[in-house]
């Protein structure tokens, strides 16, 4: 919240929230699931590179939903255990006069405690959304196509 208050534009906000999000979100799990079964065919270097690009994209995506300086009013609802080691925390978020239903999916990540692995805004899962896109890229050209599309997407945002 402090980071959001201090930022004067979206780029600043993206940089300010990055260290916070890295501590609370499992970008590894997000990237693996967004790519899908094809992940096993990525070598170590490709995997690391993909996680790096995808992390940048997710942080930009998440940051773009907020206007710097304007804070949401969040009402947290009871967490529901969907499976052992997994919970969903539903929230009713009032932001800029509109009410949104945002669900945070969390998991126990080895040695790191609870980490967010997906954010579902008004029923739209961020990871399911990228899964459809990256899967199509993988099917068309393997790991190279996935990396290329992520790079292109990040560069187009600059």
């Amino acid at each position: 919240m402090e980071a959001a208050k201090k930022s004067s534009n979206t780029t600043e906000l993206t940089f300010a929230v990055r260290p916070i999000l890295v501590r609370t979100i499992s970008f590894d799990a997000m990237t693996r699931r967004a790519v899908g079964p094809g992940w096993k065919q990525f070598d170590d270097t490709e995997q690391k590179e993909t996680i790096g690009f995808f992390t940048t994209l997710i942080i930009r995506n998440y940051s773009s939903k907020f206007t710097p300086g304007e804070l949401p009013d969040i009402e947290y609802k009871a967490a529901a255990e969907t499976a052992p080691g997994r919970v969903e925390v539903a929230t009713a978020t009032l932001y800029q006069g509109s009410r949104y239903e945002i669900v945070y999916r969390l998991e126990q990540v080895d040695g790191k405690g609870w980490r967010v692995t997906d954010v579902v805004i008004e029923g739209v899962s961020m990871i399911a959304n990228y899964r459809g896109q990256l899967d199509a890229q993988f099917k068309s050209g393997g790991a190279g196509a996935v990396l290329g599309s992520l790079k292109k997407s990040i560069n187009s945002l600059k």
């Binding site: 773009s64 029923g123 739209v124 399911a128 959304n129 459809g132 896109q133 997407s153 945002l157």
Partner: peptide
């Protein structure tokens, strides 16, 4: 804009967002 701005493939992203949103509404 929300569905396409940070997309790898804006067409698929919009389609996916729309279908998920409608599935949620129906549930």
């Amino acid at each position: 804009d929300a569905a396409t701005e940070n997309a790898v493939d804006p067409y698929i992203s919009l389609r996916s967002s729309y279908i998920q949103y409608r599935e949620k509404a129906a549930s």
